[in-house]
């Protein structure tokens, strides 16, 4: 028999991770619940003044998305590291960086995509205009994959450490800042009726950059962590 081709191995790994995510649903629900709860608490905390909520809404949603992403990051490699599956991945005859794309894609599908689905509800809660809601969805679609891709590098570097969580936040948060700035100000601009093309182009550029560089960096970081 011939060895599995790379696309087959990619598909099998993606399916495995999605199956695993489905079988431990509570792990996925947690970041999503966090995202919804944090956003929903703000009107209670700062008062239900529509003008105020419209001003701070884009920032709130994006900060919550950022923290939700950070909360879910460790699940990318933690269980694979604990049960030894990561060693098997490392020793497969397939290029590790391509397998990393499958892992990050699976992570985004179960943690990033759900944020996009609930975001319209949250933008209604924060009195954002229809235009702003539209822009919010585009920024989430462009931005959350960047969070997963960049986060994966950080997790790969810290997975071998006993208490990697704190270092992970410190390592990854500064890299999330550009996404936060461009995404939140795009939504705010759109609410004020200003053009947002420049912001969206920059977010798209960040996504392209992260997609092309992160898999190789993640693979290299994992090799360092495991040795």
């Amino acid at each position: 028999m011939k060895p599995a081709t790379l696309p087959q191995a990619f598909a099998i790994l993606l399916r495995r991770d999605l199956t695993l995510a489905y079988r431990r649903r509570s792990e996925i629900i947690n970041p999503l619940l966090f995202f919804v709860l944090v956003t929903a608490m703000f009107p209670l905390g700062v008062g239900a003044d529509p003008a105020l909520l419209r001003d701070i809404g884009p920032g709130i949603i994006w900060v919550a998305a950022l923290l939700a992403a950070l909360l879910s990051l460790e699940t990318v490699f933690r269980s694979d590291f604990d049960d030894g599956s990561l060693e098997q991945l490392l020793l497969s005859p397939h290029p590790l960086s391509v397998l990393m794309i499958a892992k990050v894609l699976a992570h985004w599908l179960v943690t990033g995509l759900p944020l996009l689905i609930v975001a319209p509800l949250l933008s209604i809660l924060l009195h954002l205009s229809d235009d702003a809601m539209h822009t919010l969805l585009i920024t989430l679609a462009l931005g959350t994959p960047v969070l997963s891709l960049v986060g994966a590098i950080g997790v790969a570097l810290t997975v071998g450490l006993r208490k990697g969580g704190t270092i992970l936040s410190i390592l990854v948060m500064p890299l999330y800042v550009p996404v936060l700035i461009f995404a939140a100000s795009a939504v705010a601009n759109s609410d004020a009726g200003l053009p947002v093309n420049a912001h969206l182009s920059l977010l798209a550029a960040l996504l392209v950059l992260a997609t092309s560089l992160s898999p190789a960096a993640t693979a290299a970081s994992l090799r360092i962590s495991m040795s």
Partner: peptide, 8 residues
Amino acid sequence: KDGIKLEL
């Protein structure tokens, strides 16, 4: 480590 996934 066995390298098997307990949920599968």
